[in-house]
Design a protein around this nucleic acid. Structure first.
Ligand SMILES: NC(=O)c1ccc[n+]([C@@H]2O[C@H](COP(=O)([O-])OP(=O)(O)OC[C@H]3O[C@@H](n4cnc5c(N)ncnc54)[C@H](O)[C@@H]3O)[C@@H](O)[C@H]2O)c1
Ligand SMILES: NC(=O)c1ccc[n+]([C@@H]2O[C@H](COP(=O)([O-])OP(=O)(O)OC[C@H]3O[C@@H](n4cnc5c(N)ncnc54)[C@H](O)[C@@H]3O)[C@@H](O)[C@H]2O)c1
Lengths: 229, 229
DNA sequence: ACGCGCTTGTGAACGCATGCACGAAGTCGA
DNA sequence: TCGACTTCGTGCATGCGTTCACAAGCGCGT
């Protein structure tokens, strides 16, 4: 019998949190903040799970990847858990974010206060349209895209948001990566090509609507054929 | 061939498409449109998969849930596949959509032309703020929320979008459901409670950023400790 | 001090999704 | 007409994620 706990690839290490769990941590964190504001000092996995809209077993397993921060027979200390989840998400610091494409959607995002409340702050707005450059949006002034490198470097930003038309998205993405950005949130309906080490998340509102229409379609079909109540 | 297809529960029926596949169909559809605009009349699973950013085996399996619309040795007919995928997504018709909460984000969505291009049309904008009601946004005039029932009923809308503050989201959702809406796209950071038969999809931009910051955090930690190369 | 009830943390079973590998089926050229 | 080549459709194995169920652990009341 050879080394039982091999650290061969494939084995899950201590600090290795499953992606599905990572995607739920922000939900838990928000639920915890609501509970904290409501005056709760401790919370059971059952109650927190209900507040987050998941099963309690799933919640416990998710939190167990971060460590053993609960007390058996009691539950979790809300304030303490907020700290641990925040730490896991890297929210111990405030992340500078740059946004490119200050159009319809970019304006809404730039003026949104919710980001600052959750650990992010916009340090730069960029566009190429001369009519946009110089415009004041929120606490920032829209800069020309050519200034991207300077701002990213001086603010040490590593997160970028793309709200340009799809046709410009890949080019903008390349410039973001060249400037040092290593995480991209993309609202344009385009598939971005990035080098290894750079993360991309895509938010596509049309996709969401089409997924809904798929289910609507099935509901309507089912109402006619299968189950007439 | 005998009818060996039992319709036992648990068996996957013909029209039963896995949820993960449904979520990718809009991506394929968009890629197909790009290819069609580019002049391609047929496309192989390999090429379409590359355009959609997935593996070719996954793409073929996904499409196989809709039927056998490919030609071995050739590939898929682009125009034909567009029709089949559109049909599966229920895009044979144009879906009327109502939007509640014409603030920062609501304005951006209401003025967005991309929805109309993809099978949806906004048939009503609603708010409770007297200052907003009456304002012209895009091709619509903002109505008071009290008119929701009338509009939903007369336009036969079944899809609703919520862009109100989180505190009002559940109340607005209840009113949407009461008016007859059976699919909700929610941008407010709140967990919505809905009766069975109503679908909800949530889009939370802060969550997306926090997921990115998790990975950024790990990258930074790894750069210091593990792999200095 | 001690047992009782409550809740966590986790091993194990299960189910879904992904990736591989290949037979089936169609096209194209000779 | 036929054979070789191309690509689809899919059974199968693998891995990931979810759910179940329960022992371990902690606080509290007696
Ligand atoms: N508006 C919405 O509600 C909405 C909804 C879903 C998706 N989207 C997507 O978000 C993106 C932006 O949408 P929008 O409505 O804000 O469009 P928009 O045209 O109003 O804004 C786009 C902005 O990007 C700028 N831009 C263009 N090319 C650029 C470049 N190369 N570098 C920097 N900036 C550049 C333009 O000057 C403009 O200000 C689009 O891809 C759209 O499909 C928007
Ligand atoms: N703006 C953004 O970029 C952004 C980003 C992420 C999330 N969000 C979320 O989207 C939602 C809207 O954001 P926003 O920036 O547009 O806020 P906003 O305050 O600009 O707009 C909210 C609108 O909803 C209306 N409203 C309030 N209560 C209502 C009710 N009961 N019925 C109908 N309408 C009502 C208000 O009158 C206002 O017009 C919020 O939940 C926010 O957290 C916004």
């Amino acid at each position: 019998m050879r080394a039982a706990l091999s650290e061969r690839s494939g084995r899950r290490r201590r600090s290795d949190v499953p992606e599905a769990t990572v995607a739920r941590l922000p939900v838990y964190l928000r639920a915890l903040h609501v509970l904290a504001d409501g005056g709760s000092s401790t919370v059971s996995s059952e109650a927190l799970a209900a507040a987050a809209g998941v099963g309690s077993a799933k919640l416990r397993k998710d939190l167990s990847y971060l460590g053993s921060y609960g007390t058996r027979g009691v539950g979790y200390d809300v304030a303490e858990l907020v700290l641990h989840v925040s730490a896991a998400l890297g929210l111990g610091r405030r992340w500078p974010v740059v946004l490119v494409g200050v159009g319809n959607l970019g304006h809404a995002l730039a003026g949104y206060g919710g980001f600052d409340e959750r650990g992010f702050c916009v340090v730069g707005l960029f566009d190429v349209d001369p009519a946009r450059v110089g415009e004041r949006v929120g606490e920032q002034v829209v800069r020309h895209l050519d200034e991207l490198d300077d701002v990213v470097h001086s603010a040490r930003a590593s997160i970028g948001v793309i709200t340009t038309p799809a046709s410009a998205a890949q080019d903008v993405c390349d410039r973001l990566v060249a400037a040092g950005i290593t995480s991209v949130l993309n609202f344009a309906p385009a598939l971005l090509q990035v080098p290894a080490g750079v993360d991309v998340r895509k938010v596509d509102l049309s996709n969401e609507l089409q997924i809904l229409s798929f289910h609507e379609h099935r509901k309507a079909a089912r109402a006619l054929t299968g189950v007439p109540a």
